[in-house]
């Protein structure tokens, strides 16, 4: 998935750089500007840009990552963040910093193929709950924000160890803030 945006960007950047280079090279010659032609070209450029943006909106807006109320999650995992750890439990998890050591669980097991809802919150500052595939790519993410519960729904197709990393800067050991999701069972077609 991330390859497509990268290739799209590299292609666009190459086109832009080429246009700028060609125009810069042309500046060695003398020529009057035909403003009627420029305006026609500008019109074509505007129309093309609007069409491209329209296509992208049409393709991407139906793919919003936010929970659809009609779908019922088959498994709930409560995620609680604090500086600098995530607790992942099917129970309520730590309700306060005072109860952290008692209720903290750093990993959770979920079956492959079921719709899991992660209810993500924090006991101190903002954190980013980022789920990484066993290959080390971001699969999905949401923020953990004080006073709010963000619901992230994921269906894991492949079994394996999915690491959780903090994707919102949260202080001194932000880079070491982790969690683990073990996905078990058969791979889904």
């Amino acid at each position: 998935m991330t390859t497509i945006p990268l290739l799209l960007f590299l292609l666009s950047a190459a086109i832009i750089a080429t246009v700028f280079a060609v125009v810069a090279r042309s500046s060695g010659q003398e020529g009057a500007v035909d403003y009627a032609r420029v305006n026609r070209l500008r019109g074509v450029f505007l129309l093309s840009l609007l069409v491209i943006l329209g296509i992208f909106l049409t393709l991407t807006l139906p793919r919003l990552p936010y929970p659809v109320e009609a779908a019922v999650p088959e498994r709930i995992v409560n995620v609680v963040g604090r500086q600098f750890a995530f607790s992942l439990t099917e129970g309520p998890g730590p309700e306060s910093l005072e109860n952290w050591d008692r209720d903290f669980v750093p990993d959770v097991q979920v079956p492959a193929g079921v719709l899991v809802e992660f209810r993500v919150r924090t006991l101190d500052v903002n954190h980013g709950f980022g789920i990484y595939t066993p290959e080390g790519r971001v699969l999905a993410q949401t923020q953990a924000m004080p006073g709010y519960v963000n619901r992230l729904r994921v269906r894991f197709d492949e079994p394996g160890t999915y690491n959780v990393m903090c994707l919102e800067y949260c202080g001194l050991s932000h880079h070491a803030m982790r969690g683990v999701i073990e996905v078990v069972g058969e791979a889904q077609p």
């Binding site: 991330t2 807006l61 793919r63 919102e168």
Partner: peptide, 23 residues
């Protein structure tokens, strides 16, 4: 500005941002 703008637009697409946010 033009090249950075393209990259910014890609990242401002919500479904892409879920993979690129804070990377």
């Amino acid at each position: 500005w033009a090249i950075g703008g393209v990259a910014a637009m890609i990242d401002s697409t919500i479904s892409v941002n879920q993979l690129f946010h804070n990377t």
